[in-house]
């Protein structure tokens, strides 16, 4: 559905040039929710703008829904953009238009007749749950409602791809969840491919199938969300993963435990439901206390971490860790006295 091959995007020239997107290769399948995560300045905003031709790559090719975005004519580009719609962090609604008129705008651009426009707009208002607010102006809506208008507007021309530019970053956690649920249901019902960029791992965990991690213009890691959660490789990925798997305060909790060996266990899928801990305590003469525990649910399955403090003889602790390995639990010693 979407292919990026050796894509580079440079801003500026000479010594001041910035490589916003650096040699990126991506392959996004039809019907997928693909997340791109990175801190601000990582180049993800530029990358998503390359997908609908708001930015042109300095080199490389971007193919999306059959359009070669880097080389199509202006007319074709406008046509393609009706099939690749976008929602924004700050919604970008026209304040001078009502909810209805905002949703109708892309249909006007596409040259749809008035009666058909009205019909489509009413359907969309229903779909995003804004019935009763049709004639309100954006200034009268809450952030979540504004984003719903943004989504309805983006769906007006029956796009094949929906690009989400930090679509939930300006919303509170509860509203974020309701917007993410809406995006998931749209993805399932309409079979739409969704590409979203975010700096919140929570968003990736909740709705994405695949994830790409960006740092300094480069994609440093890609894979299915569960895979990346299980075995993050790049340091930045580990940081992002720990955002959702380790509750805040973990580090302080560890610092306050001077004795024993600290072991981090990682459980994936069905392992999260097995009594690994009970067998550990029964089998080995060591003291086990739980420092921190957490289970996260991703689209691909559950993923849990548990930090244990083990006190006992060195040899027995080693054996205990080996036992955990046998059970298929990944372990990592994160602190020794």
């Amino acid at each position: 559905m979407i292919q990026l091959t050796d894509v580079n995007k440079k801003f500026g020239a000479g010594a001041n040039a910035i490589n916003a997107v650096d040699q990126v290769n991506l392959d996004i399948e039809e019907g997928e929710i693909f997340g791109i995560i990175g801190y601000s300045g990582a180049g993800k905003s530029t990358l998503i703008r390359l997908l609908n031709g708001l930015e042109k790559p300095s080199s490389g090719t971007v193919t999306i829904a059959g359009y070669e975005m880097s080389s199509v004519s202006n007319k074709k580009l406008r046509e393609a953009r009706q099939k690749i719609s976008m929602i924004f962090q700050h919604f970008n609604l026209l304040w001078s238009r009502t909810v209805k008129q905002n949703i109708s705008f892309p249909l006007e651009i596409a040259g749809i007749k008035k009666t058909e426009r009205e019909k489509k707009v009413n359907e969309l208002i229903e779909l995003v749950g804004l019935k009763g607010r049709e004639n309100a102006y954006p200034s009268e809506l809450s952030g979540g409602q504004k984003q719903r208008v943004g989504i309805a507007r983006a769906l007006a021309n029956d796009p094949e791809v929906l690009l989400c530019d930090e679509a939930t970053s300006a919303l509170d956690p509860e509203t974020t969840d309701s917007i993410l649920d809406l995006l998931t249901s749209i993805n399932e019902r309409l079979g739409l491919t969704i590409v979203l960029i975010t700096h919140e791992m929570h968003v990736i965990r909740k709705i994405c199938h695949q994830v790409a991690v960006m740092e300094a213009g480069k994609v440093v890691e890609t894979g299915s969300v569960l895979e990346v959660f299980q075995s993050p490789e790049a340091p930045i990925t580990k940081r992002f993963v720990s955002q959702v798997t380790e509750p805040s305060g973990t580090e302080q909790a560890i610092a306050h435990l001077p004795t024993g060996t600290l072991v981090k266990l990682v459980f994936v899928g069905e392992r999260t439901e097995q009594p690994v801990l009970a067998s550990l305590i029964r089998t080995f003469p060591i003291e086990v206390s739980i420092v921190q525990g957490n289970i996260s649910h991703t689209k691909g399955g559950a993923y849990g971490t548990l930090i244990l403090q083990l006190i006992g003889h060195e040899k027995e602790i080693e054996e205990a860790i080996a036992h955990l390995h046998e059970q298929g639990v990944r372990t990592e010693v994160i602190g020794n006295d």
Binding site: N52, L54, L77, R78, E79, A80, R81, Q82, S85, M86, F88, H90, N92, L93, L94, W95, S96, R97, F105, P106, E108, I109, A110, R153, N157, L163
Partner: peptide, 24 residues
């Protein structure tokens, strides 16, 4: 962002002038 949104919908410059710039 509003101009960018209009561009992302495939609006022509004339549409942007008359339907975005002037009303907004």
């Amino acid at each position: 962002g509003v101009i960018e949104a209009a561009r992302s919908m495939g609006a022509k410059t004339s549409t942007i002038i008359f339907k975005v710039l002037l009303p907004e």
